[in-house]
Design a protein around this nucleic acid. Structure first.
Lengths: 340, 340
DNA sequence: CTGAAAGCGCTAACAC
DNA sequence: GTGTTAGCGCTTTCAG
């Protein structure tokens, strides 16, 4: 057990019978200091196991070396993987990561951001809650903000996203190439730019292949199994489901099971998912894979660049998704689908 | 955009032409203060959007209201779910969570703990890295420590674990009841108490049913697919695999696929996993489910109780696992296995 | 080169 | 009831 009260610069000064300021200078390698003094101080500091108090430093320098992260839910493969990336990069740059969950609730998101602000964090990385429609809490942040995944175009500040449009296009095109013509899409809140880009990719893919868009097949703000079930009540039932989020994939699987529909024979399945195990599903899921860890790293990099005033390499980073074709979308077994 | 410099207690005092201490008292509801003054101060504070500077507070009161969390890997269903639980409870109690990853490396774990200490965190919640064998870094912590999952019995401080012994016993017993007799177990580092308890559960389950223990079937420190492959090289091949970690489940599935062995006909599969989607696997996995979110909450509760000097309800919390039987272990189809 | 002093924002004696 | 002062640990003028 060590002493309860941490050793301070004063303790060192006292023991060496010099002024605290001298110790401070010696420790942080100020130019104008006697080499002998410096060595002495460093030695004693070592002995006493001195570690600078970051709180005192923060108070003085008005920066905390802490970056805040607000995500909808930590226990979500996409979020946890990006947080992993953020922590990884931040750690290497001497920053620490403080995490909050919005639980997809606007109010909690606002509360978190305010809390983080009052914590004097140096910067914020955020993925918006599903039902966040007002952005005041982000607009009047003093600290730099980087958004990822769920971004809002109206806000300034860099963003890290993936090629949502192209990714969706590829995915839907693949379903079409497998013979699907009634492709329903399950998406999130319509005001998220992610949603908009993905839906555009969906519409354009259909358009490219002269398939009329059936608005009934576009489920916006998909939150419950009921809305998926609804798709299968009318006379025209989908022959494919494109999900824009892992949770929606799970829900689809449940619903299709409940309805006794086979995948992919009755309904093909494809979409965005970041469960590393989704190839082990029954059947294995065709997914648009996002470079989650890298997204986190990039977000942290952009943020720290802003904090430290380094010019940004790019205001917005767009990473590339990968279409991972598995059994869930292969209606024409054995056929090697178009690589696009 | 707001002012860059946050408003302080001094600003309020100045505007009201009173002393900062009065403002401070008014704001924190000190008894002996004029009601009128208090109201006035509160009003101005509101107007100016004053938020107390937690850094100044920390410096003064020598506590940061931050709890540190060190886990092997955030992007891991078990870890992210527990972190979710920690954040959830901590948030409600006014604490914030700072996260670090050890990446299963002892050195990085030590570095993180030291960093956290120098950060003057109020307490630490940790799940040990797989190869941590020395515990000095935890022994001489000034702040309270709570361990969860990967705990070490030699250390003081409360722990949150699950009924590893009973959980494993139940799981292995179930495999036995399905007719398996050559059950191999894939486990982690032998010095972890988790490993020890689980292996004991395994041994005792076999013993109870008079099945001799084949030491070749006990794979300690299972890190690679090779060690699983080895199991299938000799003359006596396992008819069941019990995995003690989600990653090992994935590896098993890969290996069995590679070997062309059917699950559960050739090899039954069961074990610890916290992938909420493992029922969607092909075949659905029989798993021992841990109450991950609750583990996190409990850990946070124990820690905060210690920090605030509240007497602990219990030094160690042991939560109960649930055996979720699915197709991967059902050799005798249709048979309703013993509920135990 | 080194010491003394001020101040970051806040609270808690200690006056009056 | 309210103002004054000191101090949390550290850096940074400003003197010397």
């Amino acid at each position: 057990m060590t002493r309860k009260t941490a050793v301070t610069i004063k303790d060192i000064a006292q023991q060496l019978k010099m002024a605290p300021s001298t110790v401070s200078r010696a420790l942080r390698g100020s130019r104008d200091i006697n080499a002998a003094t410096r060595l002495l101080v460093q030695q004693v500091a070592e002995e006493l196991q001195y570690t600078p108090n970051p709180i005192a430093l923060s108070l003085k320098e008005k920066r905390s070396k802490i970056i805040g992260v607000v995500v909808p839910e930590i226990a979500n493969n996409f979020c946890s993987a990006t947080i992993g990336g953020i922590e990884d990069y931040a750690y290497r740059r001497g920053y620490h990561v403080m995490i909050f969950q919005s639980h997809e609730e606007y109010e909690r998101e606002v509360a978190n951001v305010r809390l983080l602000t009052s914590r004097r964090i140096d910067g914020l990385i955020i993925s918006l809650a599903n039902n966040t429609r007002s952005f005041d809490h982000l607009e009047d942040m003093a600290a730099p903000v980087v958004m990822f995944d769920r971004v809002h175009d109206g806000l300034p500040g860099p963003t890290v996203v993936v090629d949502d449009y192209a990714g969706t296009f590829k995915g839907v095109e693949h379903l079409i190439s497998e013979g699907c013509r009634r492709i329903a899409v399950l998406s999130m809140a319509p005001w998220l730019s992610t949603t908009q880009k993905r839906l555009q990719g969906y519409r354009d893919a259909l358009g490219t292949y002269n398939i009329p868009v059936n608005e009934r097949f576009i489920v916006q703000s998909c939150e419950t199994e009921a809305s998926i079930l609804d798709l299968f009540t009318g006379p025209e039932r989908p022959d494919a489901l494109f999900f824009s989020m892992e949770r929606l994939a799970m829900m689809s699987l449940q619903v299709l099971k409940k309805l006794g529909l086979r995948i992919p024979e009755d309904v093909a399945l494809a979409g965005f998912s970041d469960n590393p195990a989704s190839t082990l599903f029954s059947p294995a899921l065709t997914t648009i894979r996002q470079p989650t860890f890298e997204i986190g790293q990039q977000a942290a990099e952009l943020l720290i660049a802003q904090i430290e005033g380094t010019p940004l390499s790019a205001p917005t980073v767009e990473l590339t998704t990968l279409l991972d074709i598995q059994a869930s979308s292969l209606k024409t077994t054995g056929k090697n689908p178009l690589a696009k």
